[in-house]
Design a protein around this nucleic acid. Structure first.
Lengths: 358, 358
DNA sequence: CCGGCCGCTGCAAACGATTGCACCAGACCG
DNA sequence: CGGTCTGGTGCAATCGTTTGCAGCGGCCGG
């Protein structure tokens, strides 16, 4: 096979060919291009005589050589790219998570390819197939929902490493890095109980989000163990939104039963919606009732009242998931999988002792 | 050249080679693989006989063939990937922008490669060089700052299309899609003037962000044209934050001059910080002073008081920038560049008539 | 009946990097 | 002095796709 210049490569503003290849460098140094390849790859550099190696490095730098990752990817079957699938880029939880992932991957020479499903299940399939054709090395999935089991199994079947982050689903054998949402729910319950609340309510998030089920479980368990009474309201919307919180709270306010004094919302936005519903009826927080949110979204400390919430270690979680992926890809050994990170309770002014307690 | 199976391709869980190549399909159909290639590419499909074409398509589908974008990218010199460089993934403005970009690019068969500089100028250079070695087809830069001119020129010199989004810098000949921040500033001023404010203040954002300069210009011009008086406070922080707003507002409150009744903050967070500074001194909004923010961040309508702000068409902006890029890459002709989109004023309860007006 | 054209298909050289293998000179050992 | 080893380098095939060119039948016009 004969090799020549003048291909279809990228040209700069003046129309000159601007991609510097191994062969270009080799010609300048006076060695074969395979030697250049070896000299520039840290893993093989020691095969090359140190003075040649230095000369190659110098010339490569001077000529502005940059390894073509596309060609390298084709040959090696590794693109050093990890697909990160998120549900909704507008979700404020997602920024820190992505930062955690990016930083860790980048340190390992990998690059995240971030795609958004916009919570559309048909998009997920299309996206995955597209990513496969781009030969990504691995998947980090952050938006798994309860019905996604078959889909996830199908992805795994392609033989590419997959890890779940933030959201997991029960009964699937995939490494998962999640928040300990049982603990999160329990923390909320403990807090309300400690303040003296005995009648509590739970505004639950979407039923197909496992983390919401876990929050519910942690909360209810702790409440039941203390012998307090609980009302559960279930969201029917696909996401935790203020509107949904408003709706559930209205439902609660309309019921004939006495209003619970302590409320746990599965999402800060739901809590905010609930607050406005209560306000509309002339109820004050925390005088008439307390409310605990979830996620500790940005600026909830500036709401009125500042929202008590459960804070999640988002960036750390992303970092751990990425760390796992890096290990997975670099060594064949399976590192310990599936960690749950502990959330923390952030107490602010939306919670206080119930009225009859003061 | 002889071709055989059994290379280094990806293997699935059972160790089988799992990449289906053109050659595999060709063998199954009984034609040459170049024919398969042509049959599957819409641009060349009409070169192949319609019955062969159908057969190829059927077999390709049955066998689960997916074009290898890496190989294709190597050959064609086009990766169908557009780098999107953002400053900070945690910034709530960025989600909608990215969604706008992603959707538009995806519709054109391109994929965004999102990277975060974390507002670190040295990272930018490293990242760009990495992206070049990944052979991205184009750049969308969303975090340009005033001193970045030389850097941008250097990027452009690589001969890759570059477009600026959200942030532009003066005197650079690059297509840019930005908000009309002069108008934004002016809207804020008009609103305050219409309410009757005659003594106003401006809490300016970072001096190296051009859009802040424009906001300032629009605001001051309009105020001056109305003959009102203005105090300007300059931020020294690298970003618009609540702390910075608090600091500037305190500065304003400490000065001997009478407190301006109308305040324009270059960022909602600064406005919120300013509000808390004022509250600490026992001042009430909008009774004692009015304040207008910028960006209309999520949930500012739930603050107390709900914040009057300037809303930016983020998703649309992203869409337009991507649209431009798509045109740029598909046809050689240069579509009309550099649009400014009009922001809108969202009036809420943080603004009202000045006290002496009532 | 022949030249030419057309529609379809095959051939093989790329794209740029990687890598097993061969080769060569010199060192070193017996 | 012959043989072996070894450090360094070159050779060429390969990853999977694209694409200019050539070839080949058949059909048409002259």
């Amino acid at each position: 096979m004969q090799r020549r210049g003048g291909g279809v490569g990228r040209r700069d503003a003046s129309g000159e060919r601007t991609i510097v290849t191994l062969e270009d460098v080799a010609r300048a140094v006076g060695v074969h291009y395979s030697t250049v390849s070896r000299a520039l790859d840290p893993d093989t550099a020691r095969q090359v005589n140190v003075v040649t190696r230095k000369r190659v490095a110098a010339v490569a730098k001077r000529m502005g050589y940059h390894k073509d990752m596309v060609a390298s990817g084709l040959k090696r079957g590794r693109t050093h790219t990890v697909a990160v699938v998120v549900g909704d880029l507008g979700n404020p939880n997602i920024g820190p998570l992505l930062r955690g992932i990016s930083n860790r991957l980048e340190a390992a020479g990998l690059m995240p390819l971030i795609v958004e499903t916009q919570n559309d299940p048909t998009r997920l399939e299309r996206i995955v197939s597209h990513l496969l054709s781009r030969r990504v090395d691995a998947f980090i999935l952050t938006a798994a929902r309860l019905g996604d089991g078959p889909k996830l199994r199908r992805i795994r079947r392609h033989g590419i490493p997959v890890v779940l982050a933030v959201q997991s689903i029960p009964g699937i054998r995939l490494p998962a890095f999640t928040n300990d949402d049982i603990l999160g729910g329990s923390l909320a319950a403990q807090h309300l109980l400690a303040l003296g609340h005995r009648r509590v309510a739970q505004l639950r998030g979407p039923a197909d989000i496992y983390s919401c089920l876990q929050r519910a479980q942690g909360f209810s368990q702790t409440i039941a163990a203390a012998g307090a009474t609980e009302v559960v309201l279930r969201s029917t919307a696909p996401m935790g939104t203020a509107e949904e919180g408003n709706r559930l709270m209205s439902q609660l306010l309309n019921s004939k039963r006495p209003l619970p004094t302590g409320i746990f919302a599965h999402h800060d936005l739901m809590a905010l919606g609930a607050l406005s519903a209560a306000e509309d009826r002339g109820l004050a927080c925390p005088a008439d009732f307390s409310i605990v949110g979830y996620n500790d979204l940005p600026n909830v400390e500036r709401m009125v009242p500042p929202l008590t919430s459960i804070r999640l270690p988002r960036e750390e979680l992303g970092g751990l998931a990425a760390e796992f992926m890096v290990k997975m890809l670099s060594s064949a050994e399976r590192p310990p999988a599936s960690r749950r990170l502990a959330p923390t309770l952030v107490v602010r002014q939306s919670t206080g002792p119930p009225r009859d307690f003061r």
